[in-house]
Each structure stands twice: as C-alpha cells, then as structure tokens.
Design a protein around this nucleic acid. Sequence first.
DNA 1: TGTACATCAGTGAACGCGCGTTCACTGATGTAC
DNA 2: TGTACATCAGTGAACGCGCGTTCACTGATGTAC
Lengths: 207, 207
Amino acid sequence: MRYSREHKQETHDRIVKKASVRLREKGAHGIGVADLMKEAGLTHGGFYAHFDSREALVIEAFAYAMDRSMEHWRKQSDQVAPEKQLSQIVETYLSALHRDNPGHGCSIPALGAEIARESPKTRKAFAGKLDEMIETMADCIPGQPRKAARKQAIATLATMAGTMLLARIAGTSELSDEVLKAGKDSALDGARREPTKPAKKPREKQN
Amino acid sequence: MRYSREHKQETHDRIVKKASVRLREKGAHGIGVADLMKEAGLTHGGFYAHFDSREALVIEAFAYAMDRSMEHWRKQSDQVAPEKQLSQIVETYLSALHRDNPGHGCSIPALGAEIARESPKTRKAFAGKLDEMIETMADCIPGQPRKAARKQAIATLATMAGTMLLARIAGTSELSDEVLKAGKDSALDGARREPTKPAKKPREKQN
DNA sequence: TGTACATCAGTGAACGCGCGTTCACTGATGTAC
DNA sequence: TGTACATCAGTGAACGCGCGTTCACTGATGTAC
C-alpha cells in the first residue's frame, strides 16, 4: 500500500509519540520494538522504514518528551505574573498527579539515569535538551542576570527532579507524600529567594 | 569441593559487593548473571546456590550499596562539628569524583528510576532503605524537632540526587560543572538555613 | 480521461544472539565410625 | 588416628524465550504516457 505524502510522517510521529509515553513508563529498555509498533497499530517489520535503529527512536521519543515538557512550562508560566512563573512550574511538577503518571511527565527522573549510560550520541542529545530546559526555566526567572537565572533554574530543576525520583521510589505511601511536600516547600522557598551566593568556602575546581 | 562453614558466606558477600558496583555503573538491567559471577571469579551455574533469582541479588546488592553510603556519611559527619555535618555530606556528595564514579557512589541517582519500576518486593526494599537514609541525614541536623530535621534532610537529599542526575546527563562538560556548582551552592544554602516553612498556599492533599 | 507500470509503507516469517534459569555432574572437605 | 561415606559449592552444557534486526513479499496508490 502506497500512501499519500503526509502519511509516512504521520505514522512516524504517531510511533514517536506513543513510544515517548511507554518509554517513560517502562524505562529506556523496558519495552521492545514489537510492542512499541503495536502501540502505534503496526507490526514490527515496518519499524526500519521509519528508524535506523531502536536507539534512533529512543532519541527521537526522548527529545519529543522534553519538548512537550518545555512547551507545557511555557504555556503555564504565560498565565501568571513573571515573579510567580517559577513557583507555578514547581507546584505543577511536584504533584501526586505527576508522580503517578510518569508516561506523561518529565523525562529526567524517568529516563535520566538510563540515558546517561547510553552511547555518546544519545547522551549528547539528552544533554542538549537539558540545556534547553535550563534556558526555558531561566526565562521564568525575571530581574536577574542570565548567569544567575541559569543557576537558580538548575538548582530548582535539580530539586524538582530529585524529589520526583525519591517520591517514585517511595511509591504511593505516606513517605512519598512527605517527600513531595518537603521537596515542594524547599523548591518554592528557593524560587522565591534571591540567587544563592557561592558557599562561604568557594572552591575553584572540584572538591 | 566442599568448603568450610564461612566460605559460602564469604563468596556470597563477594558476589553482592562486586554486583553492587557493576549494577550502579551499568544499571539494574545493564549486566547479566554470567558477567556478575565472572566478576566474583565464578561461573554462572553456581549463582543459584547463593540467590533465588537475579532479582534477589539486585535487592541485596542495592541494600548493600545504600548501607555503605550511610556508613560513609556517618563516618564523615563524625569528624566535624554538628552544625557542619550536613554541609560536609553535601560537599562530598556533589563532587566530580562522585559524578565520575557511579559504581562507588549513591544508588539513588544511579538506580532509583529503574528500581521504582521493579516488582513491589524490590520497590519496598528500596523505599525502606530510602527512609533509613533520610533518618541518617536527619541525624546530622542538630537542634531541630525530628519532623523538621527529616524535612530538611529530604529536601537536601532530593537536591543532591537531582543534581547528580543532571550532572551525569551532562557528562563531563562545562554544563556538568555548572550543574554541580549550582546544585552544591543551593544545597549548602539550604543546609545552613532554618527549616523551610510550608509554602504560603499550604495544600492539604495533592495539588 | 484511461491504462500500464513503478513505488514503497507495511507485513510476517525468520535470523542470530544473549539472557535467566535448570540440571547432571564433580571432587575437596566435613563427619561418622 | 585412620577410613569410608555424605555433603554441597561450584562447573559447564543445555533449555526456552524474547529481543533487535533482516528480508522477500504485498498491494494500494502515485506517476508516466
């Protein structure tokens, strides 16, 4: 069956979209090519008409997921005053809803560790999107030099991602709710405060 | 060959120890039974004399790694004044050395996401160790009611784990160093400050 | 406008491979006498 | 103290299974005339 010009792109996009959900849910190695194709209503043999390899799909699906997160953040922050934008993102991110729906959530706590162990190609794709994400968050921090805004964005993102990771480890327990609350209060506190100065013992290189 | 009474336990411990390193390096699914046994100087067939299943080893190896982290933290904090203990842990945790040696580092950024997706049995083992870890960190926060100390411990642990995750995604780049520094300054800042109050809009359940 | 041919997204069987697990066997050492 | 037997940690071949990938084929639609 030969299809119209747009058809292939539509199918391609559908595979990427479905894969981005399942990979976040089950992990970068948690679901196979055959099942991913079935998700998109296809059989596994056609996979290589769309992607060079499974890894290529993982990269695309992951980039797609990161783009959706950033888009979501931008839309959210557009709806509140500049000084409340970062807090707005934190509030939504550190919710039980996000914790319990990794398939539609942030890729960093879901896939970060696994992707960091992949090939340089995959890692670089991830690192690029991470930087974009930091930029997107920094855009939500008004009245500061870019470098300071980036610093605060990184700290907030780290606390958000770390809290989500801990909350998911804890499952759906009392501990998990305690974690979400502690992480949220801390991130909100940081989001409201002036940029952090270097520690009292500034260290030049490592430590 | 029949061995002395202690021999089996020694072998068992050696397998767990080596596995805990390789699993943190390669991921919870990143290395097979045969290779793990080879690490311990054995052949794969003997594996089931020591463990009921691969999963059982993962649980033991992961618990071992968490115990080593906590032991390390206690030893470190014993060497400094009470009010500096938390900062001491943060400084060591958020180092390039830790970033570049996941095999001997914290299991949370290395294995957290994968373990959170495993069977309830594995997840519960992880959640238990997470709670122990929070307690261990809370012990390093003097002069506060237990609940507040736990809250600060959770926030600090989340920032540390999240920062390490981001730093590893970034690899060994300029971005990675920027991430480490931002996360460290933020965590140190939090460790030095009074406990965070609930956000101005306190929310009872989810959000 | 109608016809013949070319295209290529998608199918489903098959491939090689590595994995977790099982199993019959080994042989050094502990134990019973 | 010496001897015969039992034990069981460890070996290595084999198992079944699922995976990523390949490939010959299909057939609806685009294109050339």
